[in-house]
């Protein structure tokens, strides 16, 4: 029988995949994909806990996570387009022009 820990382990694996992507990606668009992966992993954990504790609060937080992801994508893609107009590429190493 599938229990809560199954879902949490799958969620942790997917979150780790997203974390690997955030750590090793150099392209900004791919970095955005990796953050989407991490947000989806958190949503799975919320829905599973909501189901197994018989509580609706987890689903509510998953809705707000989805809303935040949508607005993040809208603003982030605008910034990406502006960066591409200015630099001609989306590589993170080219953007480090302040050498901080």
């Amino acid at each position: 029988m599938i229990g809560l820990s199954h879902y949490l382990i799958v969620s942790a694996i997917i979150f780790s995949i997203g974390l690997i992507g955030v750590l090793r990606r150099r392209n900004l668009l791919m970095l955005f994909f990796a953050t989407e992966v991490m947000l989806n992993a958190v949503n799975i954990a919320f829905a599973a806990i909501s189901h197994y504790y018989n509580d609706l609060t987890g689903q509510m937080f998953a809705f707000f996570v989805i809303a935040i992801a949508a607005s993040e994508v809208a603003v982030g893609l605008g910034i990406l387009i502006v960066l591409y107009k200015k630099h001609g590429s989306l590589d993170l190493d080219n953007l480090a022009n302040m050498r901080g």
Binding site: Y7, L29, F32, E36, N40, N43, A47, A48, S50, H51, Q59, A62, F63, I66, A69, A70, V73, A74, L77, L80, I81, Y84, L90
Partner: peptide, 29 residues
Amino acid sequence: LGADFLGVVQLIVYVGAIMALYSFAMMFF
């Protein structure tokens, strides 16, 4: 998991809106 409305919202918002936004943005790059 029985969260039907969340599944529908995931389909509409993520697959419908966010991926369409990404694919439109990919036309610029």
